[in-house]
Design a protein around this nucleic acid. Sequence first.
DNA 1: GCAAGGTC
Length: 675
Amino acid sequence: MVTKVLCVAEKPSIARAVANHLSGGQINSRNVQGNQYVKNYEFHCNLAAWGACSVTMTSVLGHLLSHDFEDRYRKWNSCEPSALFEARIETYVEDDKKAVAGNIERQARYAQYLYIWTDCDREGEHIGTEIRQVATHGNQALRQPGKTVRARFSNVERAHILNAASNPVALDEAQANAVMSRIELDLRIGATFTRNLTLSIQPMLQGRFGAEERQVISYGSCQFPTLGFVVERYLRVRNFVPETFWTIKVMHEKHGIKVNFRWARDHLFDRVAVIVLFERCLTARVARVTGVQTKPASKWKPLPLTTVELQKCGSRFLRMDSHRVMQVAEGLYQKGWISYPRTETDQFDRGMDLRALVQKQTQGGAWAQFAQALVNGGFSQPRQGRNNDKAHPPIHPVNFVLPTQLSAEEQRVHEFVVRRFLACCSQDARGSKTEISILYGPETFHTGGLAVLERNYLDVYPYDRWTSSQELPEFREGETFEPTEAMMRDGQTSPPGYLTEPELIALMDVNGIGTDATMAEHIKKIKDRQYVETRPRGRRQREDDDDGEQSDGEMPDEAAAAAGRGRGRARGRGARGGANARGGATAGVQEFIPTTLGVALVEGYENMGFETSLTKPFLRKEMELKMKAICESRKTKADVIHETIEQYRDVYVRTQLRLDALRAAVRKYVFGENG
DNA sequence: GCAAGGTC
């Protein structure tokens, strides 16, 4: 007797890949009426748990079920917004998912087992329970213990899939519950605050922002902190007070080469102190070389590509905002040129045949020769990053395509993905770094030089810069000289720049705001809501320190601070402030400036004086911790929902009492009134 | 007319 098994993946691409591996080639592929993406794959195979099986492998398209308040609460004026804290929520299949759900329900009727193949992350676990819910609607027997199982897999390599197929496990109910509480809380809190904000502020704004009569002023646990980052930086720029500092510059000319030495103290804000130190230098007259060190230096090849990194690089190098980059990457994925573009993983699985993927890129394109050189022995295993979402590999090219077959934007994204991948499979760049220290009077000064000896990955990855500095004349330890020039100079600290998109993404990333798939959407949302505007960053005159350091300033101070690493002072209050010093690379980058409405919202809430700020990332972090607690069975879904709702109910009540502060902020910023 | 998360 053949056992009938229904397998359901999270997306069509996984269903197809898994079906191919399990079937051994004999597959019957059927369309699902009413949906152009989902297909049913029918085949026979042996599964360890059940023996000879007749399998139907299909998929959903992400979440299958939707949630909304019951009908009588859906009209905005149907109730006081805070009634949504406890209004009944209905679960239903959205119209555009009816065909997918119907397919699963029908297929389930004939199945003895339901085998879930969703991604092995929290959302995937929850989607698994949605599939089970729909399937058991068609076939009650699948509710029995052991009849519904799931596969544990983290990539679609053949051996890995075959192994996963033989070792089914149970769905992780705790993870699914964690997601369920996230869904409920975001809905209740988002809808309550959004209605309240809109209904109480919108009348003040009529006709003020564009043509829209009814502009929604939304609150969400992700969009508000995102706005908060933009406003915080804006205020730092606006409130910046330049400070004068003093420094000592030493230059020595030797063998016709002018060498500038940097003061070890960099600069001080006390003029008299610098005068005293400078005079001691002059009194000493000669400087003595205290250290000469030449050592190998290398610039590491980049890590395998994650979504966050793709988005940051898109803003920096491809002149596309994060949302556009994802749209283009999605197209490339669907046409089969690149792998799944939503991933947090920066480690390639050891089992992956990367050489074969490199080989494909030898067929053409500007990088063909480089790829050939890797095939001919230059190949080096990619570095391993620290992230693995256990669901998808890093983004990489999966097939060769001639650039001429792609649109201009597709070419840029595709080229970046290919070059990044080839760079990962190359050797680090090698060089030699020389550091020279001198003691001049009581003060230490440094200079250094870099010689790039082997470019290696840099040849295929023009997005990184690492160039040799001018050659240094020879200095010997103990040697003394009278500096050609020694001067005391003053300067002024300069404000940080407005937040750029790569910086914003980095902030969201370290603070856990949004996911790889949604960060770009949150950014787009605060633009659409007219909380922020973007403009191309002007070419500000800055002293770029192109000394070949690894740092590219991608972690803004706010990120470090919020992430609990005290890096705020590390860079000092130097002449470069918070600049993103990376040569011309940032020329096309967009910077974010809040609108008057954006500032008003943040200021308004800040001025209410709550200890838990809605505009700071901590609440979202707290939610993340609570979800983790559910996953580890330290809390129940009911506990978390209850305590979180009470917390927000409190904020809501106090918001009502202080609505005047919010309205005052709107008047102040949007209408330029005082008070 | 609300959120954030999947996916197309």
